[in-house]
Nucleic acid binder design. Structure first.
Lengths: 356, 356
DNA sequence: TGCCGATGAACAAACGATTGCGCTAGCCTA
DNA sequence: TAGGCTAGCGCAATCGTTTGTTCATCGGCA
């Protein structure tokens, strides 16, 4: 019921105006339960609070309460739609609880990740969501011994050690590859992620497992490391498609890599899916929009973020370590990049997930 | 040269360990120029600093110095590639200066914008970048009288009043429309933004101006308000394309809206560009990747963010209001959505911009 | 009248860092 | 030997809140 204040008001100033002690204002403002106060004084103070539009200084508050109400999300790059959606999941869960969220991009550089995490520690954020970790990541080790809540998302660092939210990448890689094998493809390539990243490592193992289960040999030459950007995907795809005995289908570690591969296929005059079938991973919104539609493993990206945030918020409120791991089961979405004329069916149910 | 600390160390604890006063530690840690100190003491303290991996408590520091080293970016939705790129621009400029960036999504809701801005004020962020403002926005008025640096990006609220970074939307709308008229289209539609948003209002005026300049009438029935999402663009396009006398070309207020329109065109069996030519605005990365490639007005999105951040940082360092406005000239990029078989040419030079 | 218990609000100590200023030696100089 | 200068630190206030504790006042009751 007031105009916003020009200069931030302090308790002391208000106290002077109301002829009471600052602490009294504070208690009224915070609606201190069990506060005994004269009705006249209370309404006088409340009027003043409205009139000035008093907002407690968050910094001072944070210093006293040892809580900043800030979370941080550390990701490779927010212009990647996967991470943008992930962030939205975090904010959508954090904002209602009164938390703001810092966003830190690392571009996949360990050094930038390290320096960001260090800065966040200094800033005393209440929790960190890390979606850019490597296997055996020293940064994660640092995170562990800090007495601060954190959750690893999508990628983990050491199996079973850290709170984690992600998908079953081994199964996902297997299902994606099995889909291609089921279609009759015999030479199925893999545009792999880095083996230093859990997603890359596990999806590759899934790719191999699918071959084993199908009783088919997996040609090592058909596995090319592709990184995670569209450009690096294109580069790797060019190598793969230029082999003397090229694959007729390929499983890409992420949708972005798959899109890079699709672009290369077009440039090389390969028809999708007739000459080369392509499967991605993550089901980013873009996957359903490109032409041909990209067959991919659906994972609930937004939920990755919101679940991770809730895990963090629980820890912050309860002050317990609460190591929890949530792993969603990925879901094959068949589109035109593997099956000619495939309708884009509405997915049946929400994906299942298991929580330990 | 040390392991990260488990519990954050305080100056007082270090002081006790080094047998000096906390202030001395502080001065050494901050490399206080003009500090006179015995070499022995200095190295003893420095060793201790390294050993413990001391990191000053950012909150306490912020309280004392009245500076948080935090910027905030307020946008409608980070899953929109335009805003994701914008954010990267901000962070890329802010991070080297030691600033972290809060990201707030409003989903275009004035109420969420208001509550976010209020929260940011309480948090005492050092500066705010607002890219979701409306014309005559009360939130912006509040922002103005706060004694805190802010910059409006892409959209402005009241012409000439606020620090601003964006494109010349009037010119952009005109160039986009002129391109279609030059191609011989007589009935050119407009999927317009909201007239309560500067971009929507100006691009629409540009659309009209192009008609005037070409000496052609603009049919009011061909202007349909489309909002800013792909879905709302599709909805509006469906109405537009279903008219008794439909347009043969359309200028969409943003690329996302244009993509929605393109999807609808496909569904309705309209060929692009033969039956319906489409121009977008912003040149998001997606625009060059879809098929057919989307003709659009290129604006330097990443620079929007980095320039805005620099404007903010200047103000923070110099402590001067420094109202500056930077307006980039948009650049027509012709792709297949308007010209059959148009090559995607590398843009010639960087876009010009004018700064007041 | 004297004591007790509420009641209403002030006091003051944190939280951790920064910084202008003051204080104590020691040394030099006159 | 007194006075002054300087190097080397310590002191204490301050930033704005929160919160356990204390203090004064007043009414009621014996």
């Amino acid at each position: 019921m007031s105009s916003a204040n020009e200069m931030p008001v302090t308790l002391k100033e208000l106290a002077a105006r109301a002829n009471v002690h600052p602490s009294t204002i504070s208690r009224v403002a915070n609606n201190d339960p069990g506060l005994r106060i004269a009705t006249a004084t209370r309404s006088r103070i409340e009027a003043l609070l409205r009139e000035t539009g008093y907002q407690p200084n968050g910094i001072a508050r944070g210093l006293k309460l040892r809580q900043t109400n800030v979370l941080a999300v550390v990701i490779p790059d927010v212009t990647n739609p996967f991470f943008a959606a992930l962030f939205r999941g975090v904010e959508d869960a954090a904002a209602p609880a009164g938390f703001n969220v810092l966003l830190c991009n690392t571009d996949g550089l360990p050094e930038r990740q390290r320096s960001h995490l260090q800065g966040l520690q200094a800033r005393r954020v209440d929790g960190v969501i890390l979606a850019s970790s490597f296997l055996k990541d020293p940064s994660v080790r640092d995170l562990r011994r800090q007495q601060r809540p954190y959750v690893l998302v999508n990628r983990f660092s050491d199996e079973g050690e850290d709170p984690f939210v992600g998908s079953d990448d081994l199964l996902g890689g297997q299902l994606a590859t099995a889909h291609l094998l089921d279609l009759g493809h015999v030479r199925v390539g893999h545009l792999a992620g880095k083996s230093t990243v859990s997603t890359g490592w596990l999806r590759r193992r899934g790719y191999l497992a699918a071959h084993t289960l199908a009783g088919l040999p997996a040609d090592p030459n058909l596995i090319v490391e592709a990184g995670y950007t569209e450009e690096s995907g294109a580069l790797a795809a060019r190598r793969l498609f230029s082999l003397a005995d090229p694959p007729t289908a390929v499983f890409a570690v992420t949708d972005m890599v798959a899109l890079g591969a699709a672009e290369v296929a077009r440039q090389m005059g390969l028809r999708i899916p007739q000459d080369i079938a392509i499967v991605g991973y993550n089901d980013i919104p873009l996957a359903g929009r490109v032409s041909p539609g990209l067959t991919t493993m659906h994972v609930p990206i937004h939920e990755f973020g919101s679940v991770a945030a809730r895990l963090l918020l629980e820890q912050i409120e309860s002050d317990e370590p609460a190591r929890r791991r949530v792993r969603f089961t990925p879901d094959l979405i068949v589109r035109e990049s593997t099956v000619l004329g495939a309708a884009s069916p509405a997915r049946a149910a929400r994906p299942m997930f298991s929580a330990e």
